[in-house]
Design a protein around this nucleic acid. Sequence first.
DNA 1: CAGTGGTCTAGACCACGTG
DNA 2: ACGTGGTCTAGACCACTGC
Lengths: 249, 249
Amino acid sequence: MPLRVELMRQGGQTGNSRPLYLQIRDKLIERIRSWQWRPGEPIPTEPKLAEQYGVGHGTARQAVGELENEKLVVRIQGAGTFVFQHTPKNVMSRFFSFFDTAHGRIKPGSRRATVVVAKANAQERRELDLDARARVIRINRVRTRRDRPFMIEAISVPESLFRGLADSEDIPDTLYDLYQRSHRIHVLRTEDHVTAVAADRAAARTLGVRTGMPLLKIESVAFAIGDERVEFRVSLCHLDKAYYLAQHK
Amino acid sequence: MPLRVELMRQGGQTGNSRPLYLQIRDKLIERIRSWQWRPGEPIPTEPKLAEQYGVGHGTARQAVGELENEKLVVRIQGAGTFVFQHTPKNVMSRFFSFFDTAHGRIKPGSRRATVVVAKANAQERRELDLDARARVIRINRVRTRRDRPFMIEAISVPESLFRGLADSEDIPDTLYDLYQRSHRIHVLRTEDHVTAVAADRAAARTLGVRTGMPLLKIESVAFAIGDERVEFRVSLCHLDKAYYLAQHK
DNA sequence: CAGTGGTCTAGACCACGTG
DNA sequence: ACGTGGTCTAGACCACTGC
């Protein structure tokens, strides 16, 4: 028996007349967020969604179009509509915005990753919206470029959302695909606060530069479905013949 | 007599079957680019566009929707659809991405603007796609924050696109609205290359910091309709309790 | 109140991917 | 060949703006 859902029609006297396609959008997002449809899996076809929700196919289509704009699904003509799946490749191209002046996007390596669990400090609590007693998992590592260190990353995530992450054998180059695969956390966007700082003694030694050398400092928060803050990251970069790319539209 | 335009219908045997709504989108963009419809002015209503191009209203609507996504027009329900108009306010919020750690977006002032015309150097020719003999207009100025210098801007634009700009009485705080108003150049996006550098003697003196102080350096190219490169800008910023914001989606 | 853009429907056909 | 998403049509009604 086909599932049917009641929606607030425009004619309703409640004044609660959010457009049908947005109400359906919300329900579809919830079905993705709740893991009913998993990354890489097809969602029902547009005619089926139209039938399930008792609307015309144009309206169902409009709802799916919203999900597509928010990059929650990918439509492939002739094949179907699939829940967006983070992969190392697309995570890199979407969220890793460091480029070599001559040779395109930097393909970073990784070194010396350490993982610890601790009580969240004030900055972590603020950036991740945590309460005073919350704990975080901290990942520290050095990223390399042509096998030489160029960036120090200090990553903090709420322990409550990432149970088990601290026990991981090793930390892969890209995390957002891991977050999605293993922790059902679907990162949709990041916000980077960028400044320039002088290398302190420790950073200088790690990066192989002189103390006082100008470094790019990026404080970044990642947001998941529902604009939930799920990761705080501080990166210190020594950019030699390289740059950080930002676009404004 | 109503204007009629011939479009390539899908049935056409040429194999040239670009969707109607995209063909119409192109024609609408051209009418905006050519100044037939000016910034702030309404474009024809959707029923009129449908009639002009001999398509259903849904198709005309889809074409206008594309323009809206590209921020070339603004739709206002009940009123009409208007060519997007840059204003100091919206230029700031869209393209000036410097924030005070405590108090939101920085509202910069401006000092000591100088304007000169010269032969384009190698970097300008590369960034602006100019040939060897091309000339540029260079604007140099110091931007202030709470009345103190915090950023040095060196702006270069092709003389061929900005005739008369060099004779301007004074340079306003925001340029993209001026470019649109006085030179018919509609900036749609910018691409920023960000690095950290040490302040040299001149920069340090201008910004009131010690030589060697880490500064944010931003090399930015502005693109207009048709992805034409229309401005190259180098900014040197001393960010004290402030940051540059970038978002990735 | 007339006219604008916004939502919704139903149906037709096209382009494409898969089996 | 079939089923998917993509395009296009025609018509109805709603929500909003401005006269």
